[in-house]
């Protein structure tokens, strides 16, 4: 290796070596494997890469943990800006009054009720249909992660009936169907749900 320049003195440039390292292939591979200058160049590039990784890791460590005030303050600022979804109209006795509930509040209720069904954790959850127009058909789509060992048909039936009851209590939506899809089964044996898992 030439002392003045980091380029190997054998006609191959540092950029070529870097590309070889990055892509793992080069027409000159056989040369790189035999040429001492190129080997030294590759070793140098590797240690630069290693150092960069270490510096990134040190930067992350120095940035502090996620439960420190800096992140709490950022999240606090964001909560004010996080969207609450569409506005769902509610009827009122007096036509000059306009009442609404937010889509976000209904989705949060669906999620809370769904998470309370044994063995279920709600994933994706959407209201389909024009919920901003009173009386329009609305369909609810819910994805569920189930814990292993819970009978799925009973879980789904329970989800359907509880969500339907909640929607009729807390909104005036014209609910036409609730589509429940079990997207994942999660293994979780401790603590074991008694009577549901054979031990």
């Amino acid at each position: 290796m030439n002392n003045e320049l980091p380029d190997p003195g054998c006609g191959h440039s540092l950029d070529e070596l870097e590309e070889y390292l990055r892509t793992g292939q080069s027409a000159a591979e056989q040369h790189y494997l035999r040429c001492p200058e190129c080997q030294a160049g590759l070793a140098g590039l590797r240690s630069l890469q290693r150092l960069s990784g270490q510096l990134a890791a040190a930067d992350t460590e120095q940035a502090g943990s996620a439960d420190e005030p800096w992140l709490q303050s950022i999240l606090g600022n964001l909560r004010l800006e996080m969207r609450s979804g569409r506005s769902i109209p509610l009827s009122s006795e007096y036509p000059e009054d306009a009442f609404f509930e937010t889509e976000g509040s209904l989705l949060a209720l669906i999620r809370r009720i769904g998470d309370d069904v044994d063995g279920a954790t709600i994933g994706k959850c959407r209201l389909h249909g024009d919920i901003t127009t009173p009386g329009a058909d609305v369909m609810i789509e819910v994805n569920v992660t189930a814990f292993f060992g819970y009978p799925l048909p009973a879980m789904i039936e329970s989800l359907r009936s509880r969500i339907a009851a909640m929607i009729s209590t807390h909104s005036e939506l014209n609910l036409t169907s609730i589509d429940v899809t079990v997207t994942d089964v999660h293994e979780h044996f401790s603590p074991a749900p008694k009577g549901a898992v054979n031990e």
Partner: peptide
């Protein structure tokens, strides 16, 4: 998936997971 439906606590879990990495960077 949950956060894109508006679930704030799922989004905050993501923020906690990658917050320090982004801050250092």
């Amino acid at each position: 998936e949950r956060a894109s439906d508006g679930d704030v606590s799922s989004f905050e879990s993501l923020a906690r997971r990658y917050g320090p990495l982004m801050r250092g960077y």
